[in-house]
Design a protein around this nucleic acid. Sequence first.
DNA 1: ATTATCTGTACGTGCTACTTACAAATCACG
DNA 2: CGTGATTTGTAAGTAGCACGTACAGATAAT
Lengths: 142, 142
Amino acid sequence: MGDGGRGPLDDILGLRIRLAHGAVQRHFAEHCAHLGLTQKQVSVLWLAHDAPGIAQTDLARTLQMDRATTMAIVHALEKRGLLERERAGADARRIGFHLTQDGEQLLRAAKAAIDGHEAWLRAHFTAREVQTLARLLERIYG
Amino acid sequence: MGDGGRGPLDDILGLRIRLAHGAVQRHFAEHCAHLGLTQKQVSVLWLAHDAPGIAQTDLARTLQMDRATTMAIVHALEKRGLLERERAGADARRIGFHLTQDGEQLLRAAKAAIDGHEAWLRAHFTAREVQTLARLLERIYG
DNA sequence: ATTATCTGTACGTGCTACTTACAAATCACG
DNA sequence: CGTGATTTGTAAGTAGCACGTACAGATAAT
């Protein structure tokens, strides 16, 4: 039998990634439930903070999401008054996003919560292993 | 800036896992579309083949899914005639699952498709790195 | 025998992702 | 300059997956 009790299925690397992802998602949902934000939503807020005026297309590409998916997330954040849009200068058809004050405040709270979440995740590894894991994972999506 | 163009977000290990998972899912969906099966469905078929008579609860625990989620997957497979249930001997309340002939046949096709999918995934790494990655990932969910 | 627990079932909700389609603005080329 | 191609934003529909909850039947515990 395999090392995880799943038999030959344990040899499927894709399954391991899926299980790890599920575990991280579950922990995030528990640990960060008070924010009322999903992982994706936090990512979008974070990016909009770091790069004010970013467009939907940039968000989608950076987070490797579909445009339609990105729209759904952005709409939800706008509806909650965390994100605003502005027709920005040079390119008239481009609409940039930036955080509202509420958005900035919630993002700060989110970063604090994620610090704890990431600490839990990293606690499974040594600092060197974290580097290795990050490097290997990047090869898949990078 | 970070190494992936996401700025400080690149330091979030959870995001890396999420992006890697997404990339794997997308490749699976493309590469295995002809099966008409999702990753989860293949996993359930695979387990039911390896352990005939397995119960819903076992499936849920092994794949770390909710019972309700497991039910949805099992129902879909039953409806397609790939999976059957039987009231098995000793424990009268327990219902075991096993593959039909169609199920066995489709699972063989799925395994062939997944061979290709896994080959693509593993091609990002050396054999040693695959071992390392598998070992590190298991610490998260194991 | 009455609870408590486990298992199977069923329903509803929410997030994410994809496809497809359409409107508006811009850009490129003739 | 104007027509078509491209980009961008928008919208609707479908699907998978996860979770919560509630309920029924069988078994187990007291």
